[in-house]
Design a protein around this nucleic acid. Sequence first.
DNA 1: GCCAACGTTGGC
DNA 2: GCCAACGTTGGC
Length: 154
Amino acid sequence: MPKYWLLKTEPESFSIQDLAKSPKKTTCWDGVRNYQARNFLRDDMKIGDHVLFYHSSTDPPAIVGTAKVVKAGYPDPTAWDPNNHHFDPAASPENPRWSMVDIKLGEIFQTPLPLEQLRKVAPLKKMELLRKGSRLSVQPVTKEEFEAVLNLGQ
DNA sequence: GCCAACGTTGGC
DNA sequence: GCCAACGTTGGC
């Protein structure tokens, strides 16, 4: 059974349009430096899982499309690259510490779904993204939530 | 730019 | 292992 996720990104650093321009419309989701998010990436995200793609720190913040996991969790090499913005001196190839997955673009919604609109949708009442103070950049989503978002986006 | 809500760090 | 100080996220 595939699972459902939401991935946050700041479009100024990497947007869904950037994903559309990437080779094979695929990218590695590197740079996550939060343990809870890392655990989802490393342990729970599998090939074929469905992803909602979210733009944060932009106006308006919105779910902008979908993607699919095409490679399950593996070490994030940017963690031991001293020139990388997300460098972690405690990480090494022997002790990777941080993980990433590969995702491939699904679709870009005709119209993005802003937070404000999502808050009005009954099936999304308990969605992690809409919780006050929610900061997780990798979040599990229920099947019902995922489908409700798809209905709005298509 | 403000600030609430976290998560992390490190002294003790 | 507590917790104060600090850093970060991200909507507004």
